[in-house]
């Protein structure tokens, strides 16, 4: 564990906490894409199957359980909570997620470390996470309302993987022979997907104004 990876994990955890707080405090999920939340739940389920058969560390196990529990809690709020679910803009959150899931799964079948069920599912989760934010970014473009907390949520969610990129560079130079091409390429694509959002987020922050996305 290095400081970059720890910072990445904490940023990831914080992003989820911010989203949960937004939903619980404001009793509203306006501007939040349920599709992205469901894609992330799929990412966590397919990636953390090893919870059942391999123990890495207490930290690793606890974090995986927290990510799984919070992901399903957010989905429960957006689908079932009587007040919150009325604030979900269903007609705007229409991204065809199958166009993300199917290509990622096919790619996981073609490019992976080993043709086993858990390895293919794990690889699928790596590819899917790279594009899971797309429904959320599309929803922002459509609804234009980037409220502060949702903006912070997306910013931190993008930042965590950028910190992981630094972690991979660090590990490459400090751990002899350490290589993870699949994760590195996917993580780079994932971070690039956020670049446009980062640009407008930082601009709004520097001008100390509410974030607005172009027409």
């Amino acid at each position: 564990m290095n400081i970059f990876r720890l910072a990445g994990d904490m940023t990831h955890l914080l992003s989820i906490i911010v989203l949960l707080l937004k939903i619980q405090a404001t009793k509203s999920c306006a501007g939040v894409s349920l599709k992205t939340q469901e894609l992330y739940a799929v990412v966590f389920v397919t990636r953390y199957l090893d919870l059942f058969y391999s123990f890495i560390s207490l930290y690793n196990t606890v974090m995986k359980i927290i990510f799984l529990l919070t992901a399903f809690t957010i989905i429960w709020y957006m689908r079932k909570h009587k007040v919150v679910c009325q604030t979900y803009d269903k007609e705007q959150d229409t991204f065809r997620v199958l166009f993300l899931i199917v290509p990622c799964f096919v790619l996981a079948l073609l490019v992976n470390h080993e043709m086993s069920v858990t390895e293919v599912l794990w690889t699928f989760s790596i590819y899917l996470e790279a594009v899971a934010i797309l429904p959320q970014l599309v929803l922002l473009q459509r609804t234009k309302n980037v409220d502060n907390l949702t903006g912070n949520y997306i910013f931190m969610l993008g930042s965590y993987r950028a910190l992981y990129l630094v972690n991979w560079v660090y590990r490459y130079f400090t751990e002899l022979g350490y290589r993870q091409w699949i994760v590195w390429v996917s993580g780079t694509v994932q971070t690039c997907v956020y670049l446009d959002f980062f640009y407008y987020y930082v601009q709004a922050w520097r001008n100390n104004e509410r974030m607005k996305l172009p027409g």
């Binding site: 990876r5 994990d9 890495i56 690793n60 990510f67 470390h113 794990w122 972690n167 350490y178």
Partner: peptide, 10 residues
């Protein structure tokens, strides 16, 4: 090929 090391990252 990639380090088939244990998946220690989240």
């Amino acid at each position: 090929d990639d380090t088939k090391e244990v998946k220690d990252e989240l």
